[in-house]
């Protein structure tokens, strides 16, 4: 049996809204450690890895691990019915084919419940090794979203190069070329405006902008996003889900044959 009560229920909607355009159906795996989701997009170019820790929940009971397969579009429809400040409680039986979402208003004057049908989904689970990244940049999430949007209007692919001078995003297309350089800024008055670059070795990688732009749908989750890069390996784009977990996107680079 599963029972999980999340005071900040809107976090769930933000996570689902961030990934539902990349992945249509996914298993949400639940165990005593919490909720996790791992899924590749249909083109197998990117991988989503989400984890919400059990201690993020006010109440968490999971008697045995279970995989809840669901349509993320349908899950998004259900979560959209929750008020932005509602407390969300999930309940499911071990061998059931549904999961119930209960939404409670903060003043406890409105309670609703929605039962969502589960589905069987075959999914490959990939092992993601810990990587020593050459370059890690933590920047305001809004700035990342803006760079992706601006460059997408010019080109389809972006070269992200990290050097001691900063992190440069370069694209080109029919219109011409565009470069945006982000430099370390740890003196900004507001912490949410700060950019931190940790460079061990210079690295440059090429990516499809379409995916990087899609990842920016997670912007409402966090003030900052962290990009981690190593030569010839996928970039990891990570949004912290407050102190409750993380949403990570891995994007395979484009590599010369």
């Amino acid at each position: 049996m599963l029972e999980a009560r999340l005071v900040q229920g809107s976090m769930l909607r933000k996570v689902v809204d961030a990934v539902k355009d990349l992945v249509s159906d996914a298993n949400i795996d639940v165990s005593s450690s919490g909720f996790s989701l791992q899924a590749m997009d249909t083109s197998h170019v990117s991988l989503i890895a989400m984890h919400l820790r059990a201690d993020a929940f006010e109440h968490f009971r999971c008697d045995r691990p279970m995989s809840m397969g669901m349509s993320l579009a349908n899950l998004a429809k259900v979560l959209k019915c929750a008020g932005s400040d509602d407390i969300v409680t999930l309940k499911a039986n071990d061998d059931g084919d549904t999961v119930t979402f209960m939404f409670e208003s903060p003043k406890e004057d409105r309670v609703s419940d929605f039962e969502l049908k589960l589905m069987d989904i075959d999914s490959e689970h990939l092992g993601i090794p810990d990587t020593d990244y050459c370059a890690t940049v933590t920047m305001p999430a809004g700035e990342y979203a803006r760079i992706c949007k601006d460059l997408s209007s010019i080109g389809d692919t972006v070269v992200i190069s990290a050097t001691k001078d900063g992190v440069k995003f370069t694209t080109s297309g029919d219109v011409g070329t565009a470069n945006v350089t982000v430099r370390q800024n740890t003196t900004a008055d507001k912490k949410e405006d700060q950019t931190i670059i940790d460079l061990k070795e210079p690295v440059a990688l090429t990516f499809a902008l379409r995916y990087l732009t899609s990842f920016a749908k997670a912007t409402p989750l966090a003030t900052h996003v962290t990009l981690s890069m190593t030569r010839e390996l996928p970039v990891m784009v990570e949004y912290a889900i407050q102190d409750m977990g993380h949403l990570r996107f891995y994007l395979a680079p484009k590599i010369e044959d």
């Binding site: 590749m40 197998h44 170019v45 990117s46 991988l47 490959e124 689970h125 990939l126 092992g127 993601i128 090794p129 692919t157 090429t206 499809a208 390996l233 996928p234 891995y250 994007l251 395979a252 680079p253 484009k254 590599i255 010369e256 044959d257």
Partner: peptide, 14 residues
């Protein structure tokens, strides 16, 4: 030009 790699080629199947 550069070729798009498949993400699963970077990670092992569990």
């Amino acid at each position: 030009g550069a070729k798009q790699r498949d993400i699963s080629s970077f990670f092992s199947v569990k």
